[in-house]
């Protein structure tokens, strides 16, 4: 199966309408790349961003909210928390991709 620029293989095929709506600003992006980089959050924030316990859910977050939150942590003058350091590990574009990916997932997917 070949993939197009907006619709791709695997799980993402399930909700193409959601995808197309949400990636209008990044129409040519490879969504599997965004999925791959976003999956690196799952070790702490749960598979597909549905966390257990007190860690925040990421799945279903508004892209702008999540990206802004990460940009804020990345911009800390004196990084002190785990997430301050984690945010410093990603370029602004990578943060945008992570946030964009989680915004395509349903908010209640962990239930």
């Amino acid at each position: 199966m070949r993939v197009s620029s907006t619709i791709t293989f695997g799980k993402l095929l399930i909700a193409p309408a959601v995808l197309i709506l949400s990636i209008h600003s990044a129409i040519a992006e490879d969504q599997t790349v965004n999925r791959m980089i976003a999956s690196q959050c799952a070790q702490c924030h749960g598979t597909n961003g549905y966390a257990r316990g007190s860690y925040p859910d990421l799945g279903g977050d508004e892209a702008k909210d999540l990206a802004d939150h990460l940009y804020d942590m990345k911009g800390e003058d004196r990084p002190s928390g785990i997430m301050d350091h984690q945010a410093l590990g990603y370029t602004d574009d990578q943060i945008r991709r992570i946030a964009q990916y989680y915004s395509t997932l349903p908010e209640n997917g962990g239930d």
Partner: peptide, 10 residues
């Protein structure tokens, strides 16, 4: 893809 290969440790 090459620009977005990351791993992390915590």
């Amino acid at each position: 893809r090459l620009q977005n290969i990351t791993t992390n440790s915590a």
